[in-house]
């Protein structure tokens, strides 16, 4: 058997345990393939050990303690909205802007609030699920 044939057989039997007689005989006589087979088994052994590790106790308690109420985000949002409105008014007063400029700023503030509201209060069925789960950030290679 050639080394390349052994490698193909090892790839086909990815658990590494059910290699044919010929492949086993080749590994006995070929150091390179024997080491390759051993390292393959070592990797799978390590995977087996890692996946047997039990989840730490109290994970669910930690999760439940870490959950935020959606209402909290809404409250935060309204605080932000108020803060932005106050900032806009202060900016207008200090800068001595004209009434028309103030109006523009107010509508800009409201636009920003609308964007925030749309983001946080989006209805189920919107496309954010796909945007978040399949975004380039997550999938780039």
């Amino acid at each position: 058997m050639k080394c390349s044939t052994f490698e193909r057989e090892l790839l086909a039997h990815h658990q590494g345990l059910d290699l044919g007689v010929e492949a086993r005989l080749h590994a006995e006589s070929c150091k390179h393939c024997r080491y390759l087979w051993q390292s393959h088994l070592a990797v799978l052994h390590r995977v087996g050990e890692e996946k047997q590790v039990a989840v730490p106790p109290f994970l669910s308690t930690r999760v439940m303690a870490g959950l935020k109420e959606p209402e909290t985000r809404v409250q935060l949002l309204s605080v932000w909205k108020q803060a932005l409105q106050v900032a806009a008014v202060l900016l207008a007063l200090v800068g001595g802007y004209s009434a028309s400029v103030r109006m523009e700023e107010r509508s800009a503030t409201e636009d920003f609030s609308v964007v925030l509201s749309d983001y946080f209060l989006m209805e189920p069925g919107s496309s954010i699920e796909e945007g978040w789960l399949y975004s380039e950030t997550y999938e780039q290679e």
Binding site: V53, R62, K68, P70, M122, S126, E129
Partner: peptide
């Protein structure tokens, strides 16, 4: 574990996953 290979990090990451999943649950169709 298959990504981080140690228990402490895997536990932290699992916690983050469940918290995020809860926060995004309204997006699960």
């Amino acid at each position: 574990m298959g990504f981080v290979h140690n228990e402490a990090d895997a536990a932290d990451l699992s916690q983050d996953v469940f918290i995020k999943a809860y926060e995004k649950l309204h997006l699960f169709k």
